[in-house]
Design a protein around this nucleic acid. Structure first.
Lengths: 396, 396
DNA sequence: TGACTTTCTCCAGTGACAGGACAAAGAGTC
DNA sequence: GACTCTTTGTCCTGTCACTGGAGAAAGTCA
């Protein structure tokens, strides 16, 4: 099957492609309402896009009281691959050009095994999706990795939890393997893009997206665009110090937020509580599985276990304190909470809100929603697909 | 005298005006090298600007081996007024269109007297500058106020240290009084713009500008543009909590950074140390003046007073802790320290650097300069002039 | 059936712009 | 001083992007 070869020839065409991606099929007239172009010029550009095969005209829409319009839509055979590599699992999904998820696989994985082993697994998952008939090939792929990325080159730099990846040319390597354009970004940034595209942050221009998984990170969106910082490490809030001379953190410093709260820290604290006999629920779960995870704490909390609730509340308070600082500094219009730990739900959210609303200035918090992400594990893969589509739907 | 009436008619003209503002007089050929336009089109736009009077051609430049070029420059009679209202003093300056300071006055002032009294004083200072022959009138004015501003309207909102200003239509009122366009912004943002235009941040795209004066604030520059946040309170780091259940702050909360370090806090702590007999230097200064200021602490520290040095170091550590968090979060390319307290110089800077370099991730601090601003009190007024010139040098 | 609406296409006119030819004005060279 | 070369600025023409209007196509509604 022929893959997407053409790229938009100018800014108008790029704009049209994005309108069709975000708004679905549209008539020429409807497109004309959303773009600052005369109908004649618009018709010319649409025709050119039709020639390239990037968009197709399929059928007539119902009349709205006059001549029926032609439906213009992005080529239905276009396929993007979205990959979200976490510390302990990986999500791979196929989307169409409108970024609708057509198929989604999740598998456990240890990112510390290094890029070669991980990509072998990712490629096998992609092949599986292809074999299931969802795609005959990919027109582009977005990859999220759990660490800082030198964005233009698509190369991880000094990632604390995946040391073997430092400097590995992810973009180049995967582009070669997949035979299509690839873009690489931090997983947290992709989650932010996902929630912005199809989740709770749809109308937000300036917002923060706090992802609490194995570690803690924060996606920063300024004026609708992800902000990555000077060296690509913006949003790395897991190693902000919350306790001078506090607990030892894996990064080498002491008192980092992640040493107190994160999926890993919560599991560790829960196991300790279970072993010390402070929680029957947790002890039973530990007995059954041999180890505990953040999800187990959520189960115990849902069953009303006081120790589990305390652990969540305490972690939420610590994290809320940091978020309160960031809210004062950044004055966002929205804070989204996501990641694996969102299973902890409203106990966590309540603790976060209490801290933020109490500590930040009223002007910054007065109209500030703090909400859970609504896409769950698909946020990352949708964000990944959006990343590559933003790239492909730009003037060549 | 006729004031600037024309505005650039299109983006090209705006671009040219900014090139002339930032790069000084230039020939058509030199302008052509900096702008993506053909010589013919460029000549047309320059001619139109000459017609409006916004730029003038005065004399021929020396030959560089061929035909001598005409010097094109911004109209030399253009004048901007830059006003930087602080908590305890105000700076007023006149600049030309290239934002060179032609005259600068500083006077003590109590911002709590309210907008009417303050503007009476500011207008008198502006009149004084005009009377001295530096300007016959103003083509625009930029105003900085020590609190959050709803930027598009130019109205302070809920400013903690200047309660009487809440909702006062600063932009409209001053525009009427001065008879020229006015833009209003937070004083910290103006300092950042000043240092970016003519100071240490000239080549920086993403940087932070921490101003430690009566309070503490932080200017945020993203991609060369000041980021103001959703409600205009971005950068308000003075009320980040650094000590749970700590010292009472004027804002009502406890443990805010400003309760531990700022011009006001430092003066208070110094007086306490003097009264308790912990410092001979400070006691002598208190005896002489009846009260102490941050400048007195700087004097004592310069004389080697251990208590003064301790106060500075302790405050620097607290502030450095907060800056370290912001560096992790924002990953800036540069941190500028400014404001009245910069008189404390390298003792302060050393404490800040220690905290930041110790607490933030190497990737974020590896190549991060932390430096004092180089414009001192003129940063604010230059930033103010730049604010209004950015506005006026935009397509109408 | 006629009036009206909506959508799409076609065409001519306008204006922005590039690029080349050319003029002006200097420096350097023999 | 004549000549060449360089730099700067001006003029002109052709091309292309774009707008706006006329009109055709295809529908609804009374």
């Amino acid at each position: 099957m022929r893959r997407m070869t053409a790229r938009p020839a100018n800014a108008h065409q790029a704009r049209l492609l994005r309108l069709l991606r975000d708004g679905g099929p549209n008539s020429r007239a409807q497109l004309g309402d959303q773009i600052d172009l005369s109908r004649s010029k618009l018709a010319v550009e649409v025709d050119r896009l039709l020639e390239t095969g990037l968009v197709v005209a399929d059928g007539l829409a119902a009349s709205r009281g006059g001549r029926r319009s032609h439906n213009i839509r992005l080529a239905p055979e276009l396929r993007f691959l979205g990959v979200d590599i976490g510390a302990t699992s990986v999500d791979v999904a196929v989307t169409n050009a409108e970024l609708e998820v057509l198929g989604h696989i999740n598998q456990p994985l240890d990112v510390r095994e290094g890029p070669v082993a991980v990509f072998e697994q990712v490629l096998a998952m992609a092949a599986k999706l292809r074999a299931s008939g969802l795609a005959e090939g990919f027109d582009g792929a977005g990859i999220g990795v759990p660490g800082p990325v030198r964005f233009p080159e698509g190369v991880p730099v000094a990632p604390p939890i995946m040391p073997g990846w430092d400097g590995f040319p992810v973009r180049e390597a995967l582009s070669q393997e997949l035979g299509c354009p690839v873009m690489v970004d931090n997983d947290v940034n992709l989650m932010a893009m996902g929630e912005q595209h199809a989740g709770v942050a749809r109308s937000a221009r300036d917002f923060l997206c706090v992802k609490i998984g194995t570690g803690i990170g924060c996606g920063i969106v300024v004026g609708g665009e992800v902000y990555r910082g000077t060296t690509g490490s913006a949003g790395d809030i897991g190693h902000i110090q919350v306790e001078p001379d506090g607990r030892q953190c894996a990064c080498g410093n002491k008192g980092c937020l992640e040493a107190y709260f994160s999926g890993a820290a919560l599991a560790r604290d829960a196991e300790e509580a279970a072993r010390e006999g402070r929680s029957g629920e947790l002890a039973a779960l530990l007995e059954a599985a041999g180890k505990l995870s953040a999800a187990d704490v959520a189960v115990a909390a849902a069953a009303g276990d006081a120790t589990a609730l305390d652990l969540i509340r305490e972690g939420g308070n610590r994290t809320g304190q940091v978020i309160a600082s960031l809210v004062s500094f950044f004055n966002p219009g929205l804070v989204v909470i996501g990641g694996g730990v969102t299973g902890l739900g409203h106990t966590l959210l309540a603790a976060l809100r209490t801290q933020v609303y109490r500590q930040s200035l009223p002007l910054a918090t007065g109209n500030l929603p703090i909400v859970l992400g609504e896409l769950g594990p698909t946020a990352g893969v949708i964000g990944a697909a959006r990343l590559i589509s933003d790239h492909l739907f730009s003037p060549a």
